[in-house]
Amino acid sequence: MSALPQPNPTSSSSQRARRQISDRTILHLFIWPTLILLILINIFPLFYSLYLSFTNYSVISNKPPEWVGFANFIRMLNSEEMWSYFALTGRYALLSVGLQTGIGFGLALLLREKFKASGFLTTLILIPMMLSPVVVGLFWKLIFNPAYGIFNYLIGFTNPAVAPDWLAQPDLALFAIVIVDVWMWTPFVMLLCLSGLSAIPDYLYEAAAIDRASSWFQFWRITLPQVAPLLLIAVLFRTIEAFKAFDVVMGLTGGGPGTATNTVAIEIYRQAFLGQFRTGRASALAYIVLIIIIAVSNLYIRQINRAREG
């Protein structure tokens, strides 16, 4: 933002100046519609749900919200179930983000040097992340089916009688959603890594080659540190998304079997829109998630800044 809006040099004639709208007016005309919409649909709801999180409100009861202080938060934080949902979400985030980072980075290294059709293949690999998550969840449901799904056959279980039922066995269901998430979002990590790799100047490698540095050394001392900031951004985006995971899980398992894949985002939905419609409690839980997301983001951002400086 270097230059301030300059008075129009040609507006010296007074007639022209009157006809012309000033830059300041244009600025206000251009920017306020956006800000008003954002305040109305995003900021107001945010504060309103903060208020609701301190009440025992339920959208289906006709009673007005009643102030209950920190009761919702205390209840949530003391509930063992809730902790197990958080632990589950954490496990899910760790597994899927870890796999995505590893595979995505590996793919980016493979795709780094261009060859014929590399652009085409890259785009093919990128398709999953553009798809509708809920539709993805749905047709993976077909793929995971133990009898007529193709997944078990591809990994070698050709007898449906003994094949694992990925979505119905509590210990496997989590892995099923991890597999789908990895399938869908590894391309994203790959894309960011690719752009990070392409930004590394060639002279670093040339200098290393002249010094007869091993390719192992080149990887650890040039490639990795140079890609680290973008890799961390990818991990940050994916971690936040893992805490928000809703669509895919909903399409795939709906949180089941039992509560085996009941991530916190699903739990908020269940509290708010199913059974008792506990709006107050759901809002409190949503705020706990929000605080966790902000804390995790800050940790990552600090790490990203350190990687950039280093």
């Binding site: 709801p45 309103y48 708010a272 949503a286």
Partner: peptide, 9 residues
């Protein structure tokens, strides 16, 4: 934000 946070209000 998780969409669910915004959705309730």
């Amino acid at each position: 934000l998780p969409p669910v946070v915004v959705t309730i209000p």
